[in-house]
Amino acid sequence: MNMQCEQFEQLLEQQDEGALPKPALAHLETCEACRALSADFSAIHDMALELGNEEVAPPERVWISLRNQLEAERLILDPQAAPRNASHASSGWWSVFQRPAVAGAFLGLVLAAASTVGYMSNFAQTSVHSQLAIQQETSAVPAADSIFKEEVLTVGSDSIPGLQRQDTAVTASIRRNLQIVDNFIAICEKSVREQPDNQMAREYLYGAYQQKAELLATAMNRSMPGGLQ
């Protein structure tokens, strides 16, 4: 790089935008390298401007978590929302889930546990989704709790005969994952009992129920003759 090129680069750094002075333009006429540099900077700048107009939707958990925090800080003063505030100040174990990243990470862990078995039952997903949607719109947690307890949660890995007979690493993995989900359900249920109006607590409880249903569906599929391995 000769002196002129260095000067040109310094000028480019200081000038940033707008027309280059005449000496710089004259240098560009004769220097291919600086011409390329200048053109590349323009290309990068133009492309970056396009990036600036792009928008990216954050995951829904950010809003859920934010709303929870707004309620905890009593920034939301809705008559319906106000009573919630007193009940869940961000203390204790639940405050861990006030951060979307932490909550997401935990649910990610639960999801990863489910995915280790390598199969998600479409049937189970669809039916559980439908149940959950209906329950979210129409009922409080106790109702959902009783339905799941009767129909799903009382079932454990030991209740599936085919699974008991199998002694594979996958079966062991299913049992471990069921244990993880059961523990999480217990924590969520405790929280919902303590804070019945806590929307986020209910969200996590539903998510945990769903994971359990999916794991059980997978386990049952495996226990059937010709089921997925």
Partner: peptide
């Protein structure tokens, strides 16, 4: 968190 479920929760509002 399942986006479809949270979508259900917030849709009405």
């Amino acid at each position: 968190m399942d986006a479809s479920r949270t979508g259900t929760v917030t849709r009405t509002r």
